[in-house]
Simulated scan of single mutants.
Amino acid sequence: MKKSIYLLLTSITILTSCSSDDVENIIDPNPPTTANAVQLANDATFGNILTDSEGMSLYFFSRDTKGQSECNGDCKTAWPIFYQADLTLDEGLDAADFGVITRADGERQNTYKGWPLYYFVNDNAAGDTNGDKVGNNWYIAKPDYSLMYAEAQLVGRDADGNDLNFTSDYTEGDGLTFYITNSTGRTIYAFVNDTKDTNNYTADDFSNDPIWPIISLDINNIPSILDRNDFGTIDVFGRTQVTYKGRPLYYFGQDVERGDNYGISVPTPGIWPIVNTDTTAL
């Protein structure tokens, strides 16, 4: 009994004789925090970019226009998928912009604004951005792109309303074509009868705007393949319309699903072409 009392008193003496510094060493008042699964990093070249919790850069693939991954087999080896079940986010990122898809191979993958997210195998350290512009269809994942650069099959419709594949010269056939979309993958068009910085389609009362809506958005951040100097704006009956190489830009009202580009065959192929870096200036 006396031995127990002695041990208790000794323990109390040791604890009460510790300095405040000793107590802080025993109990850390500021334990380390876990990094978020998706971070918002600032890159000297690209500005704000998306990375994983260890600072490894994430990427978008131009062919993923319909919200599903088109990167499989050897492609997936070079561009590993990004997936975190518990997707914690840095301040400034909106959870509503993120999603999850189940890929054709059964694996799950995170998306941002409908674009599946990937790593690049040749990024060796945090902050590397070696994958940007590879093949002209891989781009660093940014949260604030105004536009995206897509690569997909052009699909119009025949006279009976059936889907019909077109090549980049608007003849029937299969093949991938590059074209500009908005940040969520909606196809952008020009009108063959427009002249330099002049909209020759839209009525002054905008009665035909639902068919071919004019595009009004801020062109702040764009994929590295695009040149900001190619974009401008014009006034269309009091509204602002974006131009590319002098061509006024439009959406097609009947492009309902993500990745649709049905406007390329209306009323006949080539009247409302897509736009890309090969588009000639007016």
Score class of each variant (00 low, 15 high):
L9R: 15
L15N: 11
S19E: 06
S20W: 15
A37H: 01
A41S: 11
N42A: 13
N48H: 12
G55R: 10
S57D: 05
S62I: 08
D64I: 06
T65N: 11
E70K: 09
T77C: 15
P80F: 05
T88Y: 04
L89G: 05
L89F: 02
G92S: 10
L93Q: 08
A95E: 15
F98M: 08
D105F: 06
E107Q: 11
N110G: 13
F120N: 03
V121Q: 13
A126T: 12
T129R: 12
N137A: 14
K142I: 10
D144W: 08
D144E: 10
M148D: 10
Y149D: 10
A150M: 06
A150K: 11
E151K: 14
A152K: 02
N162L: 00
F166Y: 10
T167N: 10
G173N: 07
L176Q: 09
F178A: 14
G185S: 04
A190I: 06
A190H: 04
A190P: 05
N200A: 10
Y201Q: 03
D205M: 04
I211Q: 00
I214L: 11
I214R: 00
I222D: 03
R228F: 15
G232E: 01
I234Q: 04
V236Q: 06
F237E: 13
V242Y: 02
R247L: 08
P248D: 03
R258D: 04
P267F: 05
I271H: 05
I271S: 13
I271Q: 12
I274S: 01
V275K: 00
D278M: 12
T279K: 02
T279H: 01
